[in-house]
Amino acid sequence: MGLAYRAGKVGRFLWSGWAGLSGLAVFAAVWQLGAEAYGSFVLPAPAETIQALFRLAADPDNRILVLSTSLRGIAGFSLAAVIGTMAGVVAGYHPAIMRLARPQVTLLIGVPPIAWIVLLMIWFGMGAGTVIATAAIAASPLVFVGAAEGIQTRDRGLEDMARMAGLSWLARLFQISLRQMLHAVFPALVMALGTAFKAAVMAELLANAGGIGGALANARSALDVEAALAWILLSVTALISVEYGIVQPLRAEAEAWREAAQPWGVRR
């Protein structure tokens, strides 16, 4: 696991970005077709939107808005990750608790975020608390289900092996069970991060709590479609930065063995 290995890994990861860029190019082409069909008032062209994005990003006040939304989204996601994982682990170990928790999860998933926003605005006011709580409530069921699934589907044979090898129950929990849970938790965390960002922007817009949501509300009232699209792109850029800057590197570190398990030809 030397420096050359890490450099190679980062290089391969960056190189794999070409596939993502080509996918984005296809999306941009469809967008361009739409812009040409409906005109720039309804749907501005991608190039115009990107120019608007750079204009917005050049303003330090706008950068603070993006940062504030990102921090709120990350705070909500972190809360969801901690609470969802802990509850999921407990439910995964105890089928009775799982049976009790299932309806609550369905309830959390089924209630539209707008309903939570109304309640949370009453409880927390029109500030960051409402935004963070909305993001956490929207994202936590996903993490819960992922963690519970990961624990339920763990290989119990490995736990017997660890018991015979002399590991205490706490060591078995951290070294064997939680480690096995990761394969189900990381996809859930990626979903939860996207949900947390979406819920944060929506809560900002509806609760008039500033951030990207507040800026989107302003663009809506001014009927500035170009600015609205540019803000959406900025929010997606912030989400992608957090996902590929924090979550995916953690995943790559924890699941390095999976790359070794892949057959040649699939790795790159």
Binding site: G157, L158, D160, M161, W257
Partner: peptide, 11 residues
Amino acid sequence: FVFQEPRLLPW
């Protein structure tokens, strides 16, 4: 204990 399957930690 040596089991029928190696039961190695894959990670």
